[in-house]
Design a protein around this nucleic acid. Structure first.
Length: 461
RNA sequence: GUGCCUAUGGUGUAACGGUUAGCACUAGGGUUUGUGGAGCCCUCAGUUCCGGUUCAAAUCCGGAUAGGCACCCCA
């Protein structure tokens, strides 16, 4: 390998994280942690219990669950073949895996319905952009084993409750129904015959969809397809009495919950297993409070750049932050002998946490340390281990300086890490059996007897 | 897959085609190992890569790569 003479030869560039996948560090870590704790807490209040499924699943879970002709399966799955020849994929979504787990673990013999929540990373191989990473995190809710509309309502209710708790003021639930199998078949037949008549006016993409997955034609954003879409038959007009009743009840629940909703007759979703209720949740909060943040740059040279930047940013269309629906036929598609009706939703955690409206919640269990432990001199270091022990038993998270000896240097680190309190433990304190607690902000400090340390520290937070 | 934009130390930035690529922050070390967020000194570290135009390229051109944004689709 030729290498330029004045450049140090390095064996190779150090690796970076894969495209669309990021390290979660520092404050961001605590934000995720805070969200997951809060979301779990709320899920539990509504009656959900936890489940965690493997990150890898057999490929057929998604090919027969999500649907062969969906984009997710067709072009977005990370797949691998094991040495034994099994085809595994990184899970692109949660529902199919939870249904698999339901069947595998005999949940059908539990009291029905079974209400589950889960969270973790999911993977789709697409081009990263705002609000879409290749590795992303979802928090999901599922109610399995009942066809009743109240389950749909509880799912939407719990989802919106979590989102509101995160600081969203105005949520809008876009909702539609695809009907049961009978309704859906009748509708699809009608839809296909309608579009067949106008096949020449359709974009190439839609022609393909018409063959493989006709409902998706309604999803098309192509200009030329819009007029046709407006005239297209609507699923609500093909509902069986049962499906109609179900939809009506769901809407009534939404009204009584005072959840803002909007019936979107072309909402069909990109996953095949849905039946009856489908919904997507967006926020109608008008964003761009970035303007304030941008204002901070001093006027002058920078202002040109700033205004250019602002002009370059078009008003951001709201991202869907959660979505879901009913999937009464999914279990059978996955090989269940009998139907397991279910309904679920999942929240796009990354989208939620990057939304300007969201106020980050501090985690309660994995706490951000509030104290920095400083030790001076060997005598104190010897005893410091038992001080740490006291603090550990009192469940006080901390950071500490192991490698620095000078007080100044250690205080500087505490400052740099923005930790509000320093615990100073030196020769004198070691002899007196005390610790100095210093408020980094006010610089006031107090000498606290060892026995009272834990209580004292707990109180100051 | 497709289109648009971008590419300088770890980070943020500067350099009419013409000095030794400048500055700030960070990090490490030092400045008497007990009260800091200050100062001073030292150190590590950069033009993404390949080619072209030119006496001369960080700067212009082409390509590659990576990232951002958008489409498709989705959480």
């Amino acid at each position: 390998m030729p290498s330029s003479s004045n450049k140090k030869t390095r064996m190779k560039e150090p690796p970076t994280s894969p495209k669309g996948m990021q390290d979660i560090i520092g404050d961001s870590y605590y934000r995720y942690q805070g969200f997951f704790e809060k979301a779990q807490e709320i899920a539990v209040y509504y009656g959900f219990g936890p489940i965690e499924t493997p990150i890898l699943e057999k490929e057929e879970v998604f090919t027969s669950g999500v649907g062969q002709d969906t984009d997710i399966v067709e072009k977005e799955m990370y797949s691998l073949k094991t040495k034994g020849g099994t085809h595994l994929v990184l899970r692109p979504e949660g529902t199919a895996a939870v249904v698999r787990a339901y069947m595998e673990n005999g949940f059908q013999s539990l009291p029905q319905p079974v209400m589950l929540y889960y969270y973790g990373p999911f993977f789709r191989h697409e081009n990263p952009q705002r609000g879409r990473m290749r590795e992303f995190r979802q928090f999901g809710l599922e109610i399995l084993g009942t066809p009743k509309s109240i389950a749909d309502a509880i799912i939407i209710r719990t989802t919106t409750a979590i989102l509101k708790e995160m600081g969203f003021k105005k949520l809008c639930v876009n909702v539609n129904t695809l009907g049961d199998k009978e309704s859906r078949n009748a509708y699809v037949r009608e839809l296909v015959s309608y579009y067949r008549k106008h096949v020449n006016a359709l974009c190439a993409n839609c022609r393909q969809r018409l063959k493989n997955n006709p409902l998706r034609v309604l999803d098309c954003k192509e200009e030329k397809c819009q007029p046709l879409k407006a005239e297209a038959p609507e699923s609500v007009n093909f509902l069986t009495p049962d499906s109609q009743q179900h939809f009506k009840e769901v809407l009534e629940y939404l009204e009584s919950m005072e959840v803002e909703y909007n019936i979107d007759k072309t909402l069909v979703r990109g996953i095949d297993y849905y039946s009856k209720t489908v919904f997507e949740i967006t926020t109608t909060d008008t964003e761009i409070p970035e303007a304030g943040a941008i204002e901070e740059t001093p006027a002058g040279e920078d202002s040109k750049k700033t205004s250019e930047a602002r002009a370059a940013v078009p008003p951001m269309p709201p991202l869907t932050i959660a979505a879901g629906g009913r999937y009464d036929y999914l279990a059978k598609q996955l090989g269940s002998r009998k139907d397991v009706p279910g309904v679920g939703a999942s929240i796009g955690v990354d989208r939620v946490l990057t939304h300007p409206q969201v106020k980050p919640l501090d985690p309660k269990i994995i706490k951000k340390p509030k104290v920095y432990f400083i030790q001076l001199g060997f005598e104190a270091k010897l005893k410091s281990l038992s001080v740490l022990e006291i603090l550990r038993k009192a469940k006080i998270p901390l950071r500490q300086a192991l490698a620095k000896d000078s007080l100044i240097a250690q205080l500087a680190v505490a400052e740099r890490l923005a930790i509000p309190y320093a615990l100073i433990f030196g020769q004198k304190e070691a002899v007196d059996n005390t610790v100095i607690v210093r408020n980094m902000d006010t610089r006031s400090q107090e000498t606290v007897p060892m026995a009272e340390l834990a209580d004292y520290v707990k109180k100051i937070k």
